[in-house]
Amino acid sequence: MADFLRNFGLPTVILVAEILAIIVPLLLAVAYLTFAERKVLAAAQLRKGPNVVGPFGLFQPLADGLKLLMKETVIPTGANRGVFIAAPILTFVLSLIAWAVIPFDDGMVIANINVGILYLFAISSLGVYGIIMAGWSSNSKYAFLGALRAAAQMVSYEVSMGFVMVSVLLCVGSLNLSAIVEAQRTVWFALPLLPMFIVFFISTLAETNRSPFDLVEGESELVAGFFVEYSSMTFALFYLGEYANMILMSAMTTVLFLGGWLAPFGWMPFTGALGHVWSMFWFFAKIAFVLFCFLWVRATMPRFRYDQLMRLGWKVFLPLSLFWLVATAGFLVTFGLLPGQG
């Protein structure tokens, strides 16, 4: 029995602890991201934003959460019950499991797999299912239209995102996320691959259905798009999922282009445990910056029309990323910089 516990129990406990150590702060971060969003938008619009509940309105997200929790879950009569309930759960779960491969610092990652970047890409491409399932099962025109938009939009932008990732891979020679970060010791990829960085950032906006690509919700024409029929906790799960996805995408941008946990210019005043804190501080700071850009864009840009969205994806980003990919490969081969060759 003791043997069993040592072999099975201990690793399981450690694993669960690790998972909790990521998920609990993540959910907190999600809650305060919604708060930050309202504050940033308010600042951009010269308002005050939430300021009633608690000091500076800091308890606002908790109050919102509590409100959603207390409400009644309404399932429309014509809805396809199983799928209707599965959709928000799927969205939420997908936004959490991707964190298994994100490295917070050298070696601080739950699963340091060889194909980390592909795993992230796979998970993010699955996100569309939550939306499609929700839109279809709601048995509502608005929701269905939102789902169709989402399907086309996410598939379109994944293509150029894929090319961007491949060009990063060309520079690294590995699909492992830690290796990608380590490869940026000399220079963050955002500089040499600047166009790709921009394409990637805009694609992540489209991939998370954020403004200016939030046609999936499109409140002015589709009421609330795919989740128009959702209420209470089912709605809350979508909401949590969306914001967790934003954080995930920011983490991905940070890892791929902004040097992950590396401090700028290799500035490393601490060692040991404090060094870890220092690295993680930079990682979170970068994520926060990218998140701020998400909100900033939302405050600034009007929503795209659907044909503009498709044009941007297929006629601008796809050729651009393809060209840059070939250019990157050509450059690396010409100057013998291809990793794993020398």
Binding site: A122, L126, I132, W136, A151
Partner: peptide, 10 residues
């Protein structure tokens, strides 16, 4: 899953 089946479903 991410591309082909989405179009199927579509």
């Amino acid at each position: 899953v991410g591309a082909v089946a989405v179009l199927f479903l579509f």
